[in-house]
Design a protein around this nucleic acid. Structure first.
Length: 799
RNA sequence: GCGGACGUGGCGGAAUUGGUAGACGCAAGGGACUUAAAAUUCCUCGAUCCUUGAUCGUACGGGUUCGAUUCCCGUCGUCCGCACCA
């Protein structure tokens, strides 16, 4: 029988409707089966989905559907990371309200996601800009405040002059705003902070207990948290000075006898105090402050210093005086803003000492060199043996470290020990205040008499006002005529509402917990959250390796501390998928979109020209799909012409999921050919397969088919468990190639009964194996083969 | 500079624990079917040579081993992260 070509447009919408009506993917919290929580990073509603989303959600859907078939109670929700700057930019540019813009985008993108045929529980959907959601976020904030996990302080902040808002350290990349790309300035502002540093040690140590995370991500977080073991060391100032001592942090107390100077930051209290009466020093400090923090600026900036004239006494020798310099390379926000320089064993100190003719004393000699060795034209930072170090001579640096620490803990300066072991972290508290409208309002009120008063829970939510003007940059909440005027909840006197909103990373730091019971009045249903969490498999881009994933880990801990959760690690398994990349095209007038380009020839003779007039086009490098390079492919177009199954299959084929996948027209067509091939093979053999008997035995051709099918079933299951979708795809191709002759024979009535029985079993397995990847095609084949019910609802085959 | 990952045909990539290198897909070439095209289908497809076969071949140079894409040492290259962090 001739089979018509498979028509995805008809079949896909039909099955999507059928799944919806059967409420197949709506998850019950009371289901007694073992749970499995699979989550893909929820999208920002920028307007339309892109191929990166297609790849991300195709992968997650394979996991979700496979686990469901294997009998797990699967939670697979979707929502919207909906607060953020683009909505305000759109408001300013297009005179559209951020709320309308956001919800319109959500509607469009939801329709697009639905057209992909994902097994999502849409009944749990929310957007972080829903009042229902940010209401609970404000409740969390108040609880955190109560527990001392939130505080306010004046601090130097990263100010993005283009977006006119504050950025967290994590959001400054190479000295530029992560969104605007503008050079970040330093400003002093009073800001709200989450005490993520309370958990520094735990956030670091627990990384070892996350075997389901990529080593790369754990390493990046380790480096970011940046633990170092060292010594706080107090140096007595000799003679007259504004301070009596200078505190220094060092990880190399073993090199104390190689010290030749102290260097302090331009913003160090001593430097500031001295600058008041020293115009030359003040000018120098200004110069330091003006220097950029960008990579280029740091690399090219010369190490410069200014001798303050202040002298300090060496901790082990009161007659040994060392000069104190202000130096541009010392940072106020790490350690104490002061260091001691040991030129022989630190390259930066070496350069500085050379420039200002300070002594360079070798105190560590490599084992092989002997005690008379000394450093040449560069610092030595390796291991060895202590020399020129009085009582430390002959020790290893490690032993010397311990000896110096032990001695200085016993010596008092004033009434405190002169030295103290100290663990230092690079991680800073998370500044969350943003001077923006489209974010979650920080629920506090400033009262002249009572100070900072949290909004009582009964008065929550603090809703964003809808009547708002976007005629100028800056925070519109500040300019609203009435919104910020409230009475103090404590004394009733006229007071001022906080007009800063929260960093949008706060919104995405706990959404995974909210999904477990989004209908609750409290932020979580403790029982449901504890039952569902941690997320078993979380899938998203590597670009969130630090920011989002670290903040989420902090939030799980903070929510545990405030009783909202019982787990501290939100994501048990993490997978970071690669990007979708595409060739770029350009001509004299700039980038050209792929749909306007005609490609001819191949290899050396491969040329591109403009579709409309045939003018030549330069084929550029392969880059991440982006609007700026115009090398994007719209998922809508692909789904319209090939169907969602083709798009999904292509995304899962060939490239290992953690690597970038190159989008090519030929690749998509290849995927589509396979869709049609399955349909044709199954369709033409359907009658013969339906009438075949159940397979038994393992002899002859039938046995070969049965063995191959069972082997594939096992291997594909294992590949999916390891998220090796490309390998699973290859094995399915192999099975189909293998099955091809038998199915063709059945279609033409030339098959024996044993082979037909084996092919019937193998075809059933094949359809179930492709079901998680190409669910619509699988349903269509399932029906044609005469099965009752939907393959999406069928148990994973056993053998 | 520090840390990490990687390097296999024309391309994307396979190869379970050290055991037939190149599965599977894409591209290409040739044949069948067709008036033709599309679709489909069959064959070929790492290199070299004296081509029924042999030799070489997983960035390069060594090593361990009966046997190395896999393990070890070194070199080169690519990519990623961090970075005046005391």
């Amino acid at each position: 029988m001739a089979t018509e070509r498979y028509n995805p447009r008809d079949a896909e919408s039909r099955w999507q409707k059928a799944w919806d009506e059967a409420k197949l993917f709506e998850t019950d919290n009371d289901d007694p089966r073992e749970k499995y929580y699979v989550l893909e990073m929820f999208p920002y509603p920028s307007g339309r989905i892109h191929m990166g989303h297609v790849r991300n959600y195709a992968m997650g859907d394979v996991v979700a559907r496979t686990k469901r078939a294997r009998g797990f109670n699967v939670l697979h929700p979707m929502g919207w990371d909906a607060f953020g700057m683009p909505a305000e930019n759109a408001a300013m540019q297009n005179k559209v309200h951020p709320k309308d813009w956001t919800y319109q985008n959500i509607a469009v993108m939801k329709r697009q996601l639905k057209s992909m045929g994902l097994s999502l529980d849409w009944s749990r959907e929310f957007a972080t800009c829903d009042v229902d959601y940010y209401h609970r976020q404000q409740m969390l904030f108040v609880d955190f405040l109560d527990k001392g996990l939130v505080y306010r302080k004046q601090s130097k902040v990263n100010w993005d002059p283009e977006d006119m808002t504050v950025l967290a350290n994590e959001q400054v990349i190479d000295g530029r705003g992560w969104r605007s790309g503008a050079l970040v300035e330093q400003r002093d502002l009073v800001q709200w902070f989450f005490k993520i540093t309370d958990f520094s040690e735990d956030l670091l140590a627990s990384l070892d207990e996350l075997p389901g995370w990529p080593e790369k991500v754990r390493l990046m977080q380790r480096n970011w948290i940046g633990k170092s073991e060292g010594l706080m060391l107090r140096w007595e100032v000799a003679g007259d000075a504004p301070v009596g001592e200078i505190e220094v942090y060092t990880t190399r107390p073993d090199t104390l006898f190689g010290a030749s100077f102290l260097a302090i930051a331009a913003d160090h209290p001593l430097a500031k105090s001295l600058a008041e009466n020293n115009a030359e020093l003040a000018a120098f400090a200004d110069k330091c402050r003006q220097m950029g923090t960008s990579v280029a600026a740091v690399e090219t900036a010369e190490k410069i210093g200014f001798d303050t004239g202040v002298r300090v006494r060496h901790p082990f020798d009161p007659d040994w005086l060392l000069p104190v310099h202000v130096a541009n390379f010392v940072l106020m926000d790490y350690g104490t803003g002061a260091i001691f320089g040991c030129p022989a064993h630190d390259q930066r100190d070496f350069d500085f000492a050379t420039k200002y003719a300070l002594p360079i004393v070798t105190v560590v000699a490599p084992e092989a060199q002997g005690a008379s060795w000394s450093v040449g034209d560069k610092a030595y930072d390796g291991d060895g043996v202590m020399v020129n170090s009085r009582f430390l001579d002959g020790m290893t640096p490690q032993a010397a470290f311990n000896d110096v620490a032990a001695r200085l803990e016993q010596i008092n300066l004033g009434n405190q020990p002169q030295g103290e072991r100290k663990t230092q972290f690079r991680l800073r508290d998370w500044g969350i205040s943003r001077q923006r409208y489209w974010g979650c309002p920080i629920p506090v009120i400033h009262c002249e008499d009572c100070g900072v008063v949290p909004v009582p829970k009964k008065d929550l939510p603090v809703k964003l006002p809808d009547d708002i003007e976007f005629d100028r940059p800056g925070n519109p909440l500040d300019r609203h005529p009435t919104w910020r005027h409230v009475n103090c909840p404590e004394c009733g006197k006229a007071a001022r509402r906080e007009t800063d909103t929260m960093d949008t990373f706060v919104d995405s730091s706990w959404y995974y917990a909210r999904f477990t019971a989004p209908w609750m009045n409290e932020p979580t249903d403790r029982k449901a959250a504890d039952a569902w969490l941690p997320v078993d498999q979380y899938i998203g881009g590597i670009e969130h390796a630090i920011l989002h994933l670290l903040y989420s880990r902090f939030f799980a801990r903070a929510m545990s501390a405030t009783g909202h959760l019982g787990v501290s690690e939100p994501f048990k398994g993490l997978f970071t998928q690669g990007m979708v990349v595409h060739e770029t095209y350009r001509n004299a007038s700039g980038w050209v979109v792929p749909s306007d380009v005609l490609i001819e020839g191949e290899g050396e003779t491969r040329r591109a020209k403009l579709m409309s007039d045939g003018s030549p086009i330069e084929i550029g490098s392969i880059e991440k799909m982006s609007k700026s390079k115009k090398n994007t492919i719209d998922p809508d177009d692909i789904i319209a012409s090939y169907g969602a199954d083709t798009a999904r299959w292509f995304m899962l084929s060939d490239s290992p999921p953690e690597r970038d996948v190159i989008w090519t027209e030929a690749g998509v067509e290849g995927a589509h050919r396979f869709v049609q091939r399955i349909w044709r093979l199954i369709g033409e053999a359907a009658d013969g397969l339906k009438s075949a008997s159940a397979a038994t035995g393992a002899d002859g051709e039938a046995g070969v088919i049965r063995k191959a099918a069972h082997k594939t079933l096992k291997a594909v299951g294992e590949d999916i468990d390891k998220l090796s979708f490309n390998k699973a795809v290859a094995r399915i191709y192999e099975l189909v190639n293998m099955l091809n002759p038998a199915l063709t024979a059945i279609a033409s009535g030339k098959s024996d009964t044993a082979t037909a029985a084996a092919a019937k079993e193998a075809s059933g397995i094949l359809i179930q194996l492709i079901a998680p990847m190409m669910p619509h095609l699988a349903e269509e084949c399932w029906t044609v083969l005469g099965h009752q019910g939907m393959v999406a609802d069928a148990d994973w085959p056993k053998f």
